[in-house]
Design a protein around this nucleic acid. Structure first.
Lengths: 340, 340
DNA sequence: AGAGCCTTCCAAAGCGCTTTGGTGTTTTCA
DNA sequence: TGAAAACACCAAAGCGCTTTGGAAGGCTCT
């Protein structure tokens, strides 16, 4: 059932039917009702390929997915996706993932906008001076950055959490508890979120005249194994840190294992706070010693990003407004006063 | 730069240019070269929207993503996606995720095929008598099932691993080691993979005249917490099982925690084997007691599914061939003879 | 009553590609 | 040497929608 058939059936022109369906004003309300009714009865759905050829609108949002044998998509993505999908569903949007060589995403971005494959894109895991942000910005497609870049001389719309604030709070708490030597087990140091977290810790220490030793910050991809290795290295020092801030629950698993392997205890020998993106399958309160966390649902962020993308597509949002969400500090059993 | 301009520039008809570019035979090789060369020089890329309106081909593969506030996309998905994306990238395919109400995926399937939004789809986490398989089959779009359904009276193409064989082997080993009472901490019991695994365990036990007690199999979504709860329930019995087969590493984390909480040890009091889908961020050899596993890379499965989808789109594969991959049993420290 | 203005509809021209159904020229082969 | 076959190309018709540029009819207003 296409427009031609439907309009013939109604003894109306395609123009009128199209307009009636798309809510244009120049059509009698009575007629519109007839049309809408008939469309529904016959299950008419405009062919998206045709519509998109005519309008350029696709009803899809895009994401360039870095791939490669050596590239691991991290599990956060799936939670983000849950939120995004949730919103997208209720607004009839689809999401297209365009796999790209991790080292050459630019080609793919150019392709998807040149080809008008999507109405908007989002960018995740941004880094300082991220070229994707500048690129997408000049390409002129609506976009939202999940996270923030830095050092760019253009404004852009983003949704981020207050990573610096979160880790500042966490570190400040640890300092208040008497810890003098902290360590940070961070995510990939090239990404902005990691930089912000480190900055937060440093600022909190500085406020008490302390510093974060260069050797006490580890920037690694977030795997259990990396958490373990980092923690072992830190804790085997003669003058080991008494508290660790950790960028993910997965790494925290490794930290806990290292602590145990070394015959130490949490929080007796080590206080631990980790960032929790809120996974349904791994919860901080279920660690053998319940884990204190800085918590922010990455799923909600996904939904928010979708919402903003939809708004930008429809034109109801524009400009470069960035939003920064506060992060909750949740205290559980894994922190205590510094050992004496 | 569109076809019209390009052909005008070359003083050829659109027909000829289009054919030259698409490799049709009825064009002089000399001319073809000229055309291809000019196209490259001017960066001509056929507009996909137009092409797809004309041909119906989209260059995209589809996946209906179940969503909803109560629905968690599981982390396996992201690994599968890595493999799929990897293959898709090298073949210029994009992936479109169509979010759907988890309880009504049918509407979405119908939509994406009626709208010709994708050239093929894949189905994951199938259940016995899975309606999606029958639906997609009658809708007549190329598809591959990742996993298997059961009880359907139609044949369909799938790629699955030998879940039954894997758990049969695992259980057989445990029995050989003298364990008489096994338990199974399984995934969602409505999914075929879980059924197959249970079947594998039962078969191994039966071979030695043993049975898997109804109370000793837990079918739950794969979270750390569920692993913990199940293990506690099992191990707190007076006549507790001495070995557990577990459907995922994530659940195994919970099992290990429960064992520790109860003051037991692995493998002294309990032997444990889990299934490992091969996550980069959580490895069985890094468990405090290295975990024996049945191993099969879900990432490779993703690549394989993409490959088969591409083959079906191009017509080089047809029919209902199902393939079942063998699973490796990897022995590590978490198994030992039954306690006496 | 006639000019002017809404209201409501339509025919036709795109959007940019593929494909059908040719045509004119050249080659092949009895 | 003439007919058939092969070659190389083209004009135009879709694909199914949106949108432009009217046009017919009914109203208002002087």
């Amino acid at each position: 059932m296409n427009l031609k058939q439907l309009s013939h059936m109604l003894a109306l022109s395609q123009t009128t039917v199209s307009r009636a369906l798309n809510g244009y004003p120049e059509v009698n309300e009575e007629t519109r009702r007839r049309v809408i009714d008939a469309a529904k009865r016959h299950g008419y759905r405009p062919n998206p390929s045709a519509r998109r050829l005519a309008t350029g609108k696709t009803g899809m949002i895009g994401y360039v997915l870095p791939t490669g044998a050596a590239v691991d998509i991290d599990p956060h993505f799936v939670e983000f996706l849950s939120g995004l999908g949730d919103y997208a569903r209720s607004h009839e949007l689809d999401l297209v993932l365009s796999p790209a060589d991790a080292d050459d995403q630019e080609t793919t971005y150019r392709r998807i906008v040149a080809n008008r494959q999507v109405d908007a894109v989002y960018i995740s895991s941004p880094r300082p001076l991220d070229r994707r942000v500048a690129l997408v910005s000049t390409l002129g497609i609506p976009f939202i950055v999940h996270g923030r870049s830095e050092g760019l001389d253009l404004d852009y719309p983003f949704t981020d959490i207050d990573n610096e604030g979160a880790f500042h709070e966490a570190a400040r708490l640890l300092v208040q508890l008497g810890h003098r030597r902290l360590a940070l087990i961070n995510g990939d140091g090239r990404e902005t979120f990691a930089i912000h977290r480190e900055r937060g810790v440093r600022r909190a220490l500085a406020a008490s005249g302390l510093v974060l030793d260069e050797g006490d910050v580890c920037s690694l991809t977030m795997t259990e194994e990396n958490g373990y290795r980092a923690a072992r290295r830190l804790l085997e020092q003669s003058d080991a840190p008494t508290a660790i801030a950790c960028s993910s629950l997965i790494m925290a698993l490794g930290v806990v294992r290292a602590v145990r392997d070394l015959g130490l205890t949490i929080p007796g020998d080590l206080s631990l706070i980790a960032h929790d993106d809120v996974f349904p399958w791994l919860k901080p309160e279920n660690f053998s010693v319940p884990l204190s966390t800085t918590r922010s649902s990455i799923r909600l962020a996904g939904a928010r990003v979708a919402e903003r993308l939809a708004a930008r597509i429809s034109g109801s949002e524009e400009g470069a407004r960035g939003e920064v969400w506060p992060v909750d500090l949740v205290i559980r059993g894994s922190v205590a006063g510094a050992p004496t």
